[in-house]
Design a protein around this nucleic acid. Structure first.
Length: 562
DNA sequence: CCCCCCCC
């Protein structure tokens, strides 16, 4: 059996050509040093001509390594990758989607005699071993990472009572990471919001780790996984509906709640819910009482299942960002069977809303946002109306629109958040509030992802490190505590002049408190009227200090033209 | 059959 490697692919990739569906041989795989959290695997790949050791497996593909599918000498098709340039100029290739075409046994050894590719454009000296994993500087393994990727879900505490508290569900933190990604993602089309497909080839050599299906939901056994599409055997989530009782979906669990109890006039009981995703869409599934006992431990985040025989009902969109018009309720005859074939199933689906657009979206809408966490409040404890204490922490997220919005995390999620390295934060299903203008709050059902392996995350990282960090950003969220401390972004009057603050639409209210204005700074009489507004006057006073510095944030306070 | 999501 033979496969052809895509000769020249390594060189082309590293010269910036976005290549999809290239066939490479894995020569080595090892874990790079990270802190707690999901491991990162670094791959030495060969196209038969050149090898390159700075391929990184996207963390959502870690299962391929953990299931011993990605072993040295196997031949893979790298279906999708993202090229990143580190601040020191080194290139890393993030493998976003890979399919194993041929096992190591079948391949039988190294193909050809590849030489390590040199980033400068030459192959390195021939005396170096082609299979060495140290043919490139490896002084800081973490520098080859796109960031410590981790994720939490906001979930409820175990069913012990009313004491609801955020619980970090997937503590997948990695070490702090200061890497500066400097290259824009040429291979990251931003148009699509379906990200990080996790396609894997059905492995003939991989025995089923899960128990065989007790029930066969299909006429043709889906366990064979012999075709690249679900074919006639399963239905897509987008196509199921309440009028059709016979359906089976194959889908990945993307969000799983804890068990919760309820008690109301209609009765009491317990439930848990989870979201599942396939290539067509996503849908929420809820299990009650007996079905909780039956399925709670079986259903695992990230895993793929065949799901059949359950009730479809119209979804209440108020509680979900999922696209489906329906949701699923499990019943006594429902079947959930693990599936070994995750081919074609994305890891996550987000419809990120640009931060600047939040101003135009109705309050209480559930939305997905991605941004750089450029700063964060300290964790604080608040007491709720029901006398519970809970931690909270607001993150300030900025995206390429240049606008900032505060996202409040709660409970353990707030306490565990690591702001160092100004990580990319993606939140799925946050609720938009109008506090301070516009702000966001993470919900029990929200998913907060830190440095996720998403093309949008890589793009944002590059944007921020190149230009975004220097932006005089404007926050949609005005907090009363501004101006009270070190978080304040003070500007000198020369900054105001150089950055043309106060020109155009905006007015600088704070200038009112400056005793002596240098040449070139004028105060429009209209401002006096505005300051008669008690609220605004108070803010203006706070935002001006004795040295005649003003705070850039207050530019947003007034929209009257000078 | 839940749908709680907290505070400024």
């Amino acid at each position: 059996m033979s496969v052809n490697l895509t000769q020249g692919a390594v060189e082309a990739l590293l010269n910036g050509s976005p290549l999809n569906n290239i066939v490479l041989q894995l020569l080595n795989i090892r874990q790079v040093v990270t802190g707690p959290g999901p491991p990162r695997f670094r791959l030495l790949m060969s196209d038969g001509q050149h090898s390159w050791n700075s391929f990184l497996l996207a963390t959502q593909l870690n299962h391929l390594k953990e299931e011993n599918r990605l072993v040295p000498n196997c031949v893979c098709m790298v279906k999708k990758s993202i090229i990143n340039k580190l601040s020191d100029g080194r290139l890393v290739v993030i493998v976003m989607d890979v399919e194993i075409l041929q096992s190591a046994e079948e391949t039988g050894g190294k193909i050809g005699n590849p030489t390590p590719y040199n980033a400068v454009g030459k192959t390195s000296s021939p005396q170096k071993s082609a299979s060495s994993t140290s043919d490139l500087p490896d002084s800081s393994p973490s520098a080859a990472e796109p960031g410590p990727s981790y994720m939490y879900n906001s979930t409820l505490s175990p069913p012990r009572g009313r004491g609801r508290e955020f619980v970090e569900k997937s503590p997948m933190k990695a070490s702090p990471m200061k890497t500066s990604w400097t290259s824009p993602m040429k291979t990251s089309p931003m148009k699509t919001s379906w990200t990080s497909p996790m396609k894997t080839s059905p492995m003939k050599t991989s025995p089923m780790k899960t128990s065989p299906m007790k029930t066969s939901p299909m006429t043709t056994s889906p366990m064979k996984g012999t075709s690249t599409s679900p074919g006639s055997s399963t239905m897509l989530i987008a196509n199921i509906n309440p009028y059709q009782s016979k359906w089976t979906i194959r889908a990945r669990v993307t969000n799983k709640s804890n068990v919760r109890t309820w008690s109301n006039s209609r009765g009491e009981g317990k439930l848990f819910s989870f979201d599942v995703l396939d290539e067509s869409g996503e849908i929420k599934i809820t299990a009650f009482n007996n079905e909780v006992d039956k399925f709670f431990t079986l259903v695992e985040h990230g895993k793929v299942y065949y799901i059949t025989k359950a009730t479809l009902k119209v979804a209440n969109k108020q509680y979900s960002t999922l696209k489906s018009n329906y949701e699923i309720t499990l019943h006594a005859h429902s079947s959930i069977v693990p599936c070994d074939d995750s081919q074609g199933l994305p890891a996550v689906h987000c419809d990120f809303v640009p931060i600047a657009e939040l101003e135009n979206i109705d309050v209480d809408t559930l939305i997905d946002v991605i941004g750089i966490c450029k700063s964060a409040d300290d964790v604080s404890r608040i007491t709720t109306k029901t006398s519970r204490e809970v931690s909270k922490r607001a993150l300030n997220l900025i995206d390429t629109t240049g606008k900032v919005v505060a996202l409040t995390l709660w409970g353990e999620e707030a306490e565990k958040f690591d702001v160092s390295g100004k990580p990319v934060v993606a939140v799925k299903g946050a609720r938009l509030s109008d506090f301070g203008g516009r702000s966001l709050s993470a919900l029990f059902s929200s998913t907060v992802m830190v440095n996720p392996d998403l093309p949008q995350a890589f793009s944002l990282r590059a944007w921020y490190d190149q230009e975004g960090y220097a932006l005089d950003s404007e926050s949609l969220t005005q907090t009363r505590s501004m101006g009270s401390g070190q978080k304040t972004n003070w500007k000198t009057l020369s900054d105001v002049k150089n950055e043309h603050l106060g020109h155009g639409e905006k007015v600088l209210l704070s200038v009112l408190k400056v005793n002596t204005l240098p040449q070139g700074f004028g105060v429009h009489s209209g401002i006096q009227r505005e300051t008669k507004n008690k609220h605004r006057r108070r803010r203006a006073e706070r935002m001006t200090n004795a040295e005649g510095f003003i705070q850039s944030g207050l530019v947003a306070l007034c929209s009257r033209s000078c």
